[in-house]
Design a protein around this nucleic acid. Structure first.
Lengths: 330, 330
DNA sequence: ATGAAAGCGCTAACAC
DNA sequence: GTGTTAGCGCTTTCAT
């Protein structure tokens, strides 16, 4: 039925070992026998069995990726960065969506470890002790992507969320805004907490009183941002600027303003986050904090390959961010 | 170092086979010994090696997915449908992006076959003879997702592209439009060809002359749709309605119209395709042909599981489409 | 430069 | 209900 390395060896009149050598590109094979073997492989249509190879070599050339949701613009873009570099180093990637659910995250990681992946890329929200313990129990390298371990024990690649938020809010403050809304999500999460810190610090540094009514915690999607913003803008003390957790919400904020007859950026300025493609698919185009998603993915994967090969490397990488100014701010 | 099934057997005082039985949930194990084994597994922190299992059982519980680009909204959404059902049946998915490049497609499929995936989901453009031959050479089931084999030899799940285009154009014609632009891509591809056929047939059935200037072939992205539409709308004989290949282009068409002072839908009506989330993230919201991406993915994966288990099933599934009418049409 | 042989960790008959 | 044994298809010493 299936043709194995043994069949090739017999047809070529050599041993298993020799076939293995030419398949794996070993140098020490006489050109003439190499040719014989290649011919046999061709004739038989031999395809090496990666599972058998994996068992014997203890390497699967597969890496596992756990992320919240592959259908999200943000993670899909990031995944592409991962994939391209993985490909470059001849790794395949098994992608699994966790929906940020902790039990599912744990289960998915366990499953990937059973599959003997050579490394793991973890993109999630909170890193709990349970995560740390699980990661510790494995013998393969793991890198946290677009987030980090507050205890600085696990390798990671990310941007400085706090500084990024600080920069965005300062940008707004310098234009004279005093009532700046922060549309964010799940405040108990590490990520949102950092952004909030940056927001608060920026206000403080510019002597603006913090008003908790300006901070709203909602699901990070268009619809909730749309209705929330609509309500806020109808208030007596409406915000004059809005800083959102992502671009989808930023677009919603623009639309909310426009729907009730306000002008962006004259009546209200808006800054999004991430610089996903969609930030240019709205009028006025959305000013946003650039988080280099593709690069974060790519750098993470590159770091992982180094870790797998025990190469020297920094294990906490912070990529630069910046503000891309478009028309939703003056 | 790594704990194997053998270690568990020794600690529990049973044989390999018994451990294997409890791990795989076989019925014929005495409750008391099952408990002993479970305890040993717990104590040792045993994790079954899926690679070894795969080699012995000739099943990897992994399926391969080849798609054009995981960072695209359309394929990411579809991938999520695939993943959810895969998960339900305890399969993992290896995702690889082909960029619609034929050589890369072939290479990726070969690679996945080497990895001994239990089945393959292929989302691509053209199915060439080379594809057919490659698919035929494999012993695992393959299903074409969101496209089909003109020769009807390969299982597939999709919508009726031609009819969908026909419906959209007819919808426009019935409102009195005579100059309907078709913004499409790579006309030589099977997919675009079907859409064009539907477009032409709809015009013909309503006695409207076909004008080749109304059909433009461009990269299916925002920027090219934006500039192309801008140019078209400035023409003397500008179209009064636009039907685009996807929603991204539909949004671009709306913006192009607005940028030159035209009103949507009063001056020009626009219909997109796919009903991705973004079709609601624009003002006016985009009328679009609904292609149920998530469902296509889910149904494909379900079909694949049936094929893997040799169950009876239809092998060509056509899912329903419809037009979601929003504000970009009157 | 090439071959022989011992695993890699597990499943799946087949026996008891 | 449980144990024995023979592979699954390959890599990798160690000889030669």
């Amino acid at each position: 039925m299936t043709v194995t390395i043994y069949d090739v060896a017999r047809l070529a009149g050599v041993s298993l070992a020799t076939v293995s050598r030419v398949v794996n590109g070993s140098t020490s094979v006489k050109p003439s026998t190499r040719r014989k073997v290649l011919k046999a492989i061709e004739d038989l249509g031999y395809r090496p069995n990666a599972v058998a190879r994996g068992l014997a070599s203890k390497k699967t050339t597969t890496i596992g990726v756990v992320l919240p949701d592959i259908s999200s613009l943000f993670f899909a873009e990031l995944a592409r960065g991962i994939e391209d570099i993985a490909n470059m180093y001849h790794y395949d990637i098994i992608i699994s969506s966790s929906d940020q659910n902790r039990d599912k995250e744990i289960q998915l990681v366990n499953n990937l470890l059973e599959k003997q992946v050579d490394g793991l890329l973890f993109l999630g929200g909170q890193i709990t002790d349970e995560h740390r313990q699980l990661f510790g129990s494995s013998s393969i390298p793991i890198v946290l992507v677009s987030s980090n371990d507050p205890q600085h024990k696990i390798p990671s690649v990310r941007i400085d969320q706090e500084q990024a938020a600080y920069d965005a809010v300062s940008f707004l403050v310098k234009k004279g805004h005093k009532r700046i809304a922060l549309l964010t999500t799940k405040l108990h999460s590490h990520f949102s907490q950092l952004r909030l810190n940056g927001y608060i610090q920026a206000l403080k540094d510019h002597d603006i009183a913090f008003d908790e009514d300006m901070v709203v915690e909602i699901p990070p999607v268009y619809q909730s941002a749309l209705s929330t913003t609509t309500n806020m803008l109808k208030l007596m003390d409406a915000p004059t600027a809005i800083f959102t957790y992502n671009d989808e919400m930023g677009i919603a904020a623009i639309h909310a303003a426009q729907d009730i007859g306000k002008h962006v950026p004259d009546d209200v300025e808006v800054i999004g986050f991430n610089n996903t493609r969609i930030s240019q698919w709205v009028r006025p185009m959305l000013t946003t904090v650039v988080q280099p998603m593709y690069d974060i993915g790519a750098v993470s994967m590159r770091l992982l390959t180094k870790l797998i090969n025990n190469e020297e490397t920094h294990t906490e990488i912070v990529l630069p961010h910046r503000i891309e100014v478009r028309q939703s701010t003056k």
